[in-house]
Amino acid sequence: MSDTLLSLRDVHQTYGDGEGAVHVLRGADLTIGRGEIVALVAPSGAGKSTLLHICGLLERPTSGEVDIAGERTARLADRQRTLLRRHRIGYVYQFHHLLPEFDALENVSMPQLIAGVGTAAGNTRSRELLEMMGIGHRATHRPAELSGGEQQRVAIARAAANRPSLILADEPTGNLDPATSDTVFAALSELIRQQNAGCIIATHNHDLARKADRIVSIVEGRMTDHIL
């Protein structure tokens, strides 16, 4: 089994044609290994969201190769990409996007039900994840009854529900105070290590970025190591 969970090779992304074309990525290369957390730090407009969308199979690059857990995705049909995304990739956003009418346990169970997991097995897995996040005692509370940090930990548990190989986190602590940010990052880190997954965290928080295994940036459309 390869230790490489994500591989981008010579990825280009261009929007538009002719003189008005915008070249966001110009030969980006990136590799993420098992158990590795990589912080992506770059100014607004540099292409962070584009890169995450390509890594998450939400966008097809103009050219280049994107491999997820050893599977080449360039020639996959949309249905195949959807299934790969469902089972191999988890997402955590700046805003938790939890379903307000469901409690924490139900929110974490939802992606498992969509993937065909039975209710009992899904609930068992959800309880385990909420305990791992340190909020097992809040399982029956709806999002409005949870603090910001608790909501994000539920969102992380939901992202990990189907045991994805890769978790993509877009400013996951952007709305949290420093102490709560540390708690959420610690919970995410522990989950990545335990599941032997890989993770990209796009963040403007330099203190959080320094806690990652390495830091990368996007400079003129290419990936580069970044030192804070």
Results as ranks from 00 to 15, higher is better:
3 D>R: 12
209 A>W: 04
57 L>I: 10
77 A>L: 14
115 A>I: 06
38 V>C: 09
189 S>V: 00
146 L>R: 05
184 V>R: 05
93 Y>K: 06
83 L>V: 14
40 L>K: 02
33 G>P: 10
3 D>F: 06
55 C>W: 07
26 R>T: 07
204 H>Y: 06
122 G>T: 00
152 Q>F: 01
148 G>Q: 05
12 H>K: 12
173 T>I: 12
159 A>Q: 03
194 Q>W: 04
24 V>H: 12
181 S>T: 09
140 T>P: 08
97 H>D: 00
53 H>Q: 13
14 T>M: 10
78 D>I: 05
49 S>D: 00
192 I>A: 11
82 T>Q: 14
160 A>D: 07
134 G>D: 10
204 H>V: 06
223 M>V: 12
133 M>E: 03
74 A>W: 01
88 R>G: 08
109 S>R: 12
36 E>N: 08
168 L>G: 04
106 E>G: 03
28 A>M: 15
177 D>I: 05
28 A>K: 13
91 Y>H: 12
126 S>N: 12
226 H>C: 14
178 P>E: 08
163 R>G: 04
198 G>E: 06
127 R>K: 13
190 E>V: 00
141 H>S: 14
25 L>E: 04
79 R>I: 02
175 N>V: 01
76 L>T: 06
109 S>F: 02
122 G>V: 03
132 M>T: 08
163 R>C: 08
115 A>Q: 09
169 A>V: 01
79 R>N: 11
54 I>Q: 11
117 V>A: 13
140 T>I: 11
54 I>A: 12
1 M>F: 00
181 S>R: 11
216 V>K: 15
168 L>M: 06
137 H>R: 13
196 N>M: 02
18 G>N: 08
154 V>M: 12
78 D>L: 10
202 A>Y: 08
196 N>A: 13
206 H>F: 03
117 V>Y: 10
102 F>W: 13
214 R>I: 01
70 G>S: 03
